[in-house]
Design a protein around this nucleic acid. Structure first.
Lengths: 194, 194, 194, 194
DNA sequence: TCCTAAGCGAGACGGTACGTCTTGTCTTCCA
DNA sequence: TGGAAGACAAGACGTACCGTCTCGCTTAGGA
C-alpha cells in the first residue's frame, strides 16, 4: 500500500511547515512572516506548500486544530471527574502550561489573534449549547448567548494575560483566579443549585 | 493667518479620508480595503494621503483617537455624578449607541480589531491606575493587573456582543447586564465598601 | 535539462518585452512610454519585468545590445573583404536598411538618444583602438581621440539624417556620401598610404 | 513707473532660477535635478516658477536662448571681418571658452543634450539657408540638407569633445582642428572657388 | 528488478498593493 | 497685485508578496 507511505511523506511535510511557521511566529510575529520565509525554513517548495494549504492562515489554523485535538485528548484522559465546568478551564490552563510556547505563538499580538479566536469559537459553541440544554434554570431576561460569550471571553482574557505576562502562577492558581472573577456573577444569573 | 485656513483645508482632507475608510470598512471589512480604494472614495491624491498618515492603520487609529476624544467629552459632560465606575461603562454604551455605525466599523472582524484594541488599551490603563490608587483595599494575592485586564476585557466582550448582534437592548440594559456579570466577582476581590 | 526549458521561457519573456518597448517607442516616443504600458503590451507581470531588467532604460539598452550583436554577425559574414574601414560603415548602413524600423526607434528624438549613444560608444572605442594601433602614421599634433570622435560622430550624423528623413537613398549611396565628406579630411591628417 | 520696477523683479527672479538650474546641473546633471531643487536653491515659490516657465526644460532653454543671444552679440562685435564661414565657428569656440562652465552645463551628458540641440538647430538652419542661397555651385547629387547637417554635427562633435575633455587647446587650435577635418570634404562637394 | 505515478524543489510568472517621488495646478495669505 | 508657501490630484516608479504554473528529479510500490 503505497498510499500509507505517501501519507507518511505528506504528514512529514505538513509538520515541517507547521513547525516552521510556529518558530517564525515566535521570532517575529505572525504578520511579519512571509510564505517564502516558511518555505525557506521548512525546505519546502512553493508549489508543495500550496498543495497542502490554501494560505498562511490555513496553515496556522491547521496548527490550532491540532492543538485543539491535543487538548481534547488531554481533557478526556485527565478529567475523569469533570463534574463541574471549572474542570474544563483547569484542563486548558494545564494544557497551556505544557505547550506554553505554542500557545503564546498562537495567541495575542504575536499570533495575529487568528488561532486563538478559532479555539475561542469552539469553546463558545460548546458552552452555549451546554447552557441551552439547561435553559429553564436561567434567570429570566438575561440573553444566554451573551452569558456564553462572556464566560469564554473572560476565560480567554485570563488565559492570554497569563501567557503574555509569563507570570509564574500555576494552572491551578490561574483557574482559581478565573473562578473567583466569574463564578459569583454567573451563579446569580444562572443558579446552578436551583 | 494663512495657517488657520491651511489647517481648515487639512482638516477637511483628513476627515474625508477618515469617513471614506469607515464607509469602506462597513462595506467590505478592513482588510479588504485598499489605500487606493480610500483615495478614490475620498477624492484625494496618493501623496496627500501619505502626507497625512503613515498607512491605512494610522488612518484607522486616527479615527479611533477621534472617537475616544468624542467619548471623553461625552463622559465629561454627562457624568457630573460619576460617583461609581459603572457610570463610565454606561457612558460608553450610550456613546456606542449614538455612534453605532462607527463603533461597528472599528470593532470586531470588520475593523480588524485594531481600533478597538487601541481604545481597550486606554481603558485598561485608566482602570489599572484607578485600582492601583486604592491598592490597600485589595484582597491579598490577587494580581491587580489581571483584575484590570479582566474588567476591561469583559466590558469589551459585552460591548462587541451588543454591536455584533444588533440586539435592541438599550444602553442602560447592557450596562445592567455588564454589572450583573462583573460586579459580584470584583467586589469579593476588591471590596469597595471596606 | 530543465534549465534549457527555463531559459527558453526566459528568453521568450525578454523578447516580448523588447518588442513591446520598440513598438511603443515607434507609437509615442521613448519618454512617453510607461513601464506599465510595456507590461500591458507584452502581457507580462510587473515583478517579472523587474526580475529581468533594472528599468526601462535597461530594457532599451538590452535591445541595443541585441542589435549590436546582430550587426556584428552581419558584418562578420558579409565583410570577408573588409580591407578598408569604409566596409564597416557600409555594413552598418546596410544593416540599418534591413532593420530600419528598429534603428529609427532606437535613434533620434524617439529613442531618447540613449540606445544610439550606446552603440556610438562601442564604435568610438573600436575606431580609437584601430587608430592607436597605427599611431606612428598619424600627423603630429592632432589629438587621436578627437579624430575618432569626429569619425564616429559624423557617421552617426549621416546615419540619423538618413533615418529621420526616410530618403530613398541606398546604403551604398549613403556610404558614398559619408566617404565623400569624411575621407578627404581624415586622409590629410592620417595618411593611410604613408 | 512701477512697471519698470516690476520688470526688474521679474528679471531678477528669472535669473535666480536660471543660475540655480545651471549650478545644480553642474553639481549633479540635468536629469537628477528636480524642480523643487531649483526652487529651494533659488528661494522661489513653486507657483512663481510656473508663472515664468512651463517646466524644467523651458527654463533650460531660456538659458540656452540667452546664451545664443550673447553669442550673437559676441559674433556681431568681434567678426567685423567674417568673410569666411570659419570665422563663425571660431567665434563660437571663443565664446565657449569664455563661458566654459555654462557650455559644459548645457551640453553633453550633464545638460541632457537638450540645450545644445536647441542651439544646434539654429546653427543648422542658418547654414542650410546659407548653402541654399548658393545652390548652383553645389556638386550635383549631394543632398544639401545632409551637407548642412554634417557641417553642424561635426562642429558640435568637436566642440563637445573639447568641453568634455577639458583639454587645454585654445579656441584657435580647436577651430583649426575643425577646419582640417571638415574643409577638404566640403570643398570637394561644394567648391567655393568655382 | 524495473516502471510508473505521486510527491516534491525550484523558480518563472501575472497580478496587485504598497509607500515614494515628482510634476503641474490651485488656493491662500502677505508685503 | 505679484510672489512665497505649500496643499493637493495625478500618476509612474521600483519593491514585496501572493497564489498559479510548469518543469524535471526523486522515490517507493506494484508489475
Amino acid at each position: 500500500m503505497g498510499k500509507k507511505i505517501a501519507d507518511r511523506r505528506v504528514r512529514r511535510t505538513r509538520e515541517f511547515l507547521q513547525s516552521a511557521l510556529v518558530a517564525l511566529i515566535v521570532e517575529r510575529g505572525y504578520d511579519a512572516v512571509t510564505v517564502q520565509d516558511v518555505l525557506d525554513r521548512a525546505n519546502v517548495g512553493r508549489s508543495t506548500f500550496y498543495a497542502h494549504f490554501r494560505d498562511k492562515e490555513d496553515l496556522l489554523l491547521s496548527g490550532a486544530e491540532k492543538l485543539w485535538k491535543q487538548f481534547e485528548e488531554h481533557f478526556a484522559s485527565a478529567a475523569v471527574t469533570n463534574e463541574t465546568p471549572w474542570m474544563l478551564s483547569l484542563a486548558m490552563f494545564e494544557h497551556a502550561a505544557e505547550q506554553r510556547a505554542l500557545y503564546r505563538a498562537l495567541s495575542g499580538k504575536q499570533g495575529g489573534n487568528i488561532a486563538l479566536q478559532h479555539i475561542q469559537k469552539k469553546l463558545y459553541v460548546s458552552v452555549r449549547d451546554h447552557l441551552k440544554a439547561q435553559a429553564p434554570k436561567r434567570k429570566k431576561g438575561f440573553p444566554p448567548d451573551l452569558l456564553a460569550h462572556y464566560i469564554i471571553s473572560s476565560f480567554i482574557a485570563v488565559l492570554t494575560w497569563w501567557l503574555d505576562n509569563d507570570a509564574s502562577y500555576t494552572p491551578a492558581q490561574m483557574n482559581e483566579f478565573y473562578r473567583q472573577l466569574v463564578q459569583p456573577g454567573v451563579e446569580q444569573i444562572f443558579p446552578v443549585h436551583a
